[in-house]
Design a protein around this nucleic acid. Sequence first.
DNA 1: CGTTTTTGACCAGCGC
DNA 2: GCGCTGGTCAAAAACG
Length: 244
Amino acid sequence: MDEKVEMLEAKVRHMKEQNRTLRMMLETMSRKWQKLQLHVQEINNAQGCRQSFSTAQKPSRIFVKTHPNDNSVMVKDGYRWKKYGQKKTTKDNPSPRAYYKCALAPTCPVKKKVQISIQDKSIIVATYEGKHNHGFASRDLLKPSSSSTPEVSTIMNNDLPMTNMSNNINIDLCLWNRVTLCDDDKQHKDGGTHIKVQECVTSLLKDPNFIASFAEAVILSINTQNKQVGLNLSLGLPQPHFFK
DNA sequence: CGTTTTTGACCAGCGC
DNA sequence: GCGCTGGTCAAAAACG
């Protein structure tokens, strides 16, 4: 009988710890979300100024930092792309450049060029041209596929073109960094908690339903708070040293 | 077997 | 005109 009580108490303690961890993650994400909103406001203001000087449309360029283990040179931006060409080398960059067309709509004029950065080979440079003349990608495209590796990139972009979207938000969910930063002191006192945090986040990131639901919730939240804001969502994977 | 990717060929633009 | 480069096409290959 006592054993059962102890087991239950242990479970309760474990759940409390998990609860604390998740709350911490949520707070971290909330802080980041607030920062992003401020950033979006700044961009809005800046664009307002810029547009008064020039209305010329430049190709958009985004930079994607990839996980070292991820060999796929693919930017998961929610749209479906058809590859129609590749150049082995270009003048300014020896790495191959791939050419993509938007495959969501046959008449969509948007094209994308993808190439590994010459400065940092862990960065993929994607250049977008044109604007989508159709709706955003269906929600299933936001879900991580079972066959492919989970999204491992942190996207830093400017002006990713999307239909009827004037701004874009990028969410960096590299929770490991945040947890490490927030709990740096605690870690020394309580190393076990840190391991549990890792386990907890690992299990969450491995769950496609969680990722899809989270992406959906964030999109919903953004749409309700700022109807003109688009979203690029990338889910960060653990830092490599955790796998050591 | 249909879809997607790869890859060599082709074309246009640009500088010399 | 020639060579180089970037972009596109389309047949072949690979894949599910």
